[in-house]
Simulated assay, not measured.
Amino acid sequence: MKTILVPTDCSKEAIHALETAVVIARQTGASVQLLHVIQTAYDREYNSGSSIPKDMKEKLDYAREEVFSKLENIIKPFREKDIQIAPYIKMGSVFQQVSEIITKEKIDMIVMGTGGASGLLELLDGSNTERVVRYANCLVLTVARKINDFKLRKTVLATNFKDIPKAFISKLNQLQDSFGFELQILYVNTPLDYQTTFAIEKRLEAFLDKHEFKNYTTHIVDHYSVEDGITAFAKKTGADIIAMATHGRTGLAHLLDGSVTENIVNHADRPVLTFHS
């Protein structure tokens, strides 16, 4: 792992994410890019140096200087600990700028803060975090709260044995090489999609044959819902993070069905590592 991107709005949630990113960077030898996006309709003109109204340019220049000062203050304590962190300020939409940087800078992991969400607003509008989780083509770690002395000793890999790309497993293995964590492979059996133990074990065996895992244990649990089963298991075993593959979906299907991964991201009490497949 070489580069970690931390999008920030300078909130406490974003700072918690940066603290977690720094721990990962120290363990893996990666550098950290701290990104703040100033949202404006004049992003193309400003970024290209084209003509924009004078008063608007002055406002954007002032906003840029103010944000840069905030980022420098946030970064200072980490630089004193020999962590390589660089601040970036972009104009435009958060998702667009994050997407461009992922490609341009070959980002290996994004670490984002999320305060959690619920209700109609989440369902209709989503959030920048949800969009990145749904579509980013790199690892995304979401952090909901401050973690004192973050360590990565146990990781729950929640799976239905379908559609997990080998690239995700490869990246998990690389992370495991750096931290040496135990991988807990979890299947949640629910009343709505009930499978016999024999059938689950047969699918599990095929899944293990397909991928190269190391230092792992396997677990099958019964629960009323997949989301609650995953979070309950992670809490019971003291897992440090939950890892899941996510599927990009848009439109009515996403509004009606939602996504197990996004529900976990929004409501889990520990970091969630996702990879878009």
Rank of each mutant, 00 (worst) to 15 (best):
Arg131Pro: 00
Asn160Asp: 15
Val221Ser: 10
Leu172Trp: 04
Leu120Gln: 03
Glu13Phe: 10
Ser31Leu: 01
Thr250Tyr: 10
Gly49Lys: 06
Asn128Ile: 02
Ser178Thr: 02
Lys151Val: 09
Ile230Gln: 12
Pro7Glu: 07
Leu60His: 06
Gly248Gln: 13
Pro53Leu: 11
Phe213Met: 03
Thr250Asn: 12
Gln33Phe: 03
Glu262Trp: 01
Ile200Gln: 03
Asn263Arg: 14
Glu45Met: 06
Lys151His: 11
Ala167Glu: 13
Tyr62Thr: 14
Lys171Ser: 13
Ala30Met: 02
Leu60Met: 10
Gln176Asn: 11
Asn263Val: 00
Asn47Leu: 07
Gly126Thr: 02
Ile107Phe: 09
Leu252Pro: 00
Gly29Tyr: 02
Ile147Trp: 02
Leu208Cys: 04
Thr142Trp: 12
Ile185Gly: 06
Phe68Glu: 12
Ile264Trp: 03
Arg79Trp: 03
Ala14Thr: 05
Glu13His: 14
Thr217His: 12
Pro53Val: 10
Ile264Glu: 02
Ser99His: 11
Ser127Met: 04
Asp222Trp: 00
Lys70Ile: 04
Ile4Cys: 09
Asp222Val: 00
Gln39Trp: 01
Thr190Ala: 10
Thr237Cys: 14
Gln27Trp: 02
Thr129Arg: 12
Val272Leu: 14
Ile74Phe: 01
His254Met: 12
Ser118Gly: 06
Arg145Ala: 13
Ile83Val: 15
Ala41Met: 14
Thr40Lys: 05
Arg131Met: 05
Gln97Ala: 13
Thr246Asn: 15
Asp193Glu: 14
Glu130Val: 07
Asp177Phe: 01
Ile15Arg: 15
Leu252Asn: 02
Asn148Glu: 11
Thr129Ser: 09
Asn73Gly: 11
Gln96Pro: 00
Ser127Asp: 05
Val221Arg: 15
Thr8Arg: 11
Ile164Gly: 01
Leu175Val: 06
Val132Glu: 02
Val67Gln: 04
Lys202Gln: 15
Arg270Val: 05
Ala206Cys: 03
Arg203Pro: 03
Val265Cys: 09
Leu123Phe: 07
Ile74Ser: 08
Ile230Asn: 07
Lys104Ser: 15
Met112Cys: 10
Pro165Phe: 07
Ala253Phe: 03
